[in-house]
Amino acid sequence: MFRRSIVRAAVVCLTAVAAAVPFVAAQAQGFPAKPVKLVIAFPAGGPTDITMRQLADNASKILGQPVIVDNKPGAGGTLPAQSLQTSAPDGYTVAQIPLGVFRLGYTTKLNWDPIKDISYVINVTGYAFGLVVPADSPFKTWADFVAYAKANPGKLTYGSTGNLTSPHLTMETLAQRAGIQLQHVPYKGSADLMLATVSGQLMAAADSTGFAPQVEA
């Protein structure tokens, strides 16, 4: 359904699982005595959700308590980190923290610090990003993409998984270097982004492995 990525960005986005500070419950006797909630930054069905759900399933078997997934997409993946600020620091609420959380302070006034006010438990995974176009797109190479954008400033649409996410910032950096102007459309996650691209609402999509099933189809 998609042609293979015409650009593969040399960017890796790290995802960590974290808890509210202080994270003392893991040391308490008898922990966990009830289900643990894992808050995920992107919608169900995307690559991050699939990875986190597998982690939750494995953790449930080890802990002997369910790890319940709670998807909170939007705001560039920063909502789980913000939700930790109102969660009890008892270890029963953990969250997936993408890199966008560390950029939040540059665009939004915060009354919390993503370094000091979150306890990071484990580094889970990283992603390689790429740019994909529909299979019937006239763009066969990056040169085709750039040529169209130069001839049609601001008319070439591409989507990403949100404002200030790594795919978004990478594309804007590439556009700046190429001297082109693109029209960015943010989505809450890979599932919505891929649907918009397949249906022709977008001319291209910048994402991580969320496009793999369509590329391989």
Rank of each mutant, 00 (worst) to 15 (best):
M1I: 09
A135V: 06
T165C: 14
A33G: 09
F139V: 10
K150R: 11
G30W: 09
K34A: 14
P32V: 15
I68Q: 13
F31Q: 07
N111S: 15
C13L: 03
S208R: 00
R4F: 03
A196C: 12
L104C: 02
V39T: 14
T197N: 15
V121P: 00
L164V: 11
D70V: 13
P134W: 07
R103L: 03
A59I: 06
L202Q: 04
F211K: 08
G100Y: 00
L131I: 12
S119N: 06
G210M: 02
F211Y: 15
V11L: 12
A26V: 03
T15Y: 11
S190V: 04
R53T: 10
T78C: 11
A18S: 12
S199Q: 15
G126H: 11
G64N: 15
Y148I: 01
K37V: 11
D207C: 14
G74Y: 07
S119T: 13
V94R: 00
L55W: 12
Q27F: 14
Q183T: 11
L156I: 08
V17M: 11
A28V: 13
V124I: 08
G200N: 05
Q54I: 08
D207Y: 08
G154L: 13
G100R: 00
N58W: 11
T48R: 12
W142V: 08
G179I: 08
Y106G: 03
R8Y: 07
N152V: 06
Q54E: 12
I62Y: 09
I62W: 02
N58P: 06
A135E: 14
T51R: 13
Q201R: 09
Y127M: 08
P66K: 02
V121E: 01
G77Q: 13
N58D: 15
L193N: 05
S60G: 11
